[in-house]
Amino acid sequence: MTRFIFNRLLQSALVLAVMSFAIYGLMGLMPGDPIDLMITSDPKITSEDAARLRALYGLDAPISERYWHWLSGALSGDFGFSRMFARPVFEVIWPALANTSILLGLSFIIALMIALPLGIIAAVRPYSGLDYGINLFVFAGISVPPFWLALLLMMLFAVVLGILPAGGTAEAAGASGFWQGLKYLVLPIASLTIASIGGHTRYMRASMIETLRNDYIRTARAKGLSERQVITGHALRNALIPVVTIIALDFGYLFSGALVTETIFAYPGMGKLIFDAIMGNDYNLAMITLLFATAFTLFGNFLADVAYTWLDPRLSFGESDQ
């Protein structure tokens, strides 16, 4: 098991290293460069000045050299300054990370609390009216454009009913206190939750139906256990194995969801930071936020693999990494 985990971690580190080069290269392909931005803010810079500045900052060097320079800085803990915030990038990232953790964590838990029971209910009575209804809901959940859902919620609760704010944070609005803060979280959490319930419910239902076909379930029923005991005592734990894996794999989609939701609700988290950094040509910040999102996603995949081998003792560790 230790060896398996080690190999898997090594693999993730390799992907991360390759991605850091790829992202760095893509950044170089974005319109303009830092000197162009200086020229826009100071029209007195001549083209000779610009060339001199490019040489001074090493921007005329080939991409591999510039990447090496960035990497050696990054490895010694120097990730550079954010252009938009005029602060070291790490000072910008921490608060955003805290905000995103609250948003993603809460919506993740709420989504599971709704989706798993729904999936089980649907699986216990397959092809019933209830199953049919849940199935419709699932399809609606995976087909709804997440940004449109957010707009609809905003229209209903902020414009028509006027009971919740349309976006932003309590601090920005000058309000304080726990409940005020919570008010600003309701709509982003609701839209993220609704968007992810569909998929989770679907996996849970499929896995539960599969599990209930097993012989040991028939045995459990034959010895007179109530249906409730059969489900919770015998079927549930086995049915959860594939679900846990798929949910861990979905970690990556969390960032995509956060990007859209946070941008719409002007919620100051990592998703909005990534978007703003790319749009605002804040290269250092974009680089590090994108790498962070990649690392987070890779970690989710790593967890999925470990969880899978750990939960299912039939899998041998040696085989799964060959």
């Binding site: 319109p31 994108l290 890779l298």
Partner: peptide, 15 residues
């Protein structure tokens, strides 16, 4: 295993 949307945004923004 990559964060799809953030990377697509970079691809969509390149010159």
């Amino acid at each position: 295993s990559l964060p799809l949307l953030p990377l697509l945004i970079v691809l969509a923004a390149i010159d």
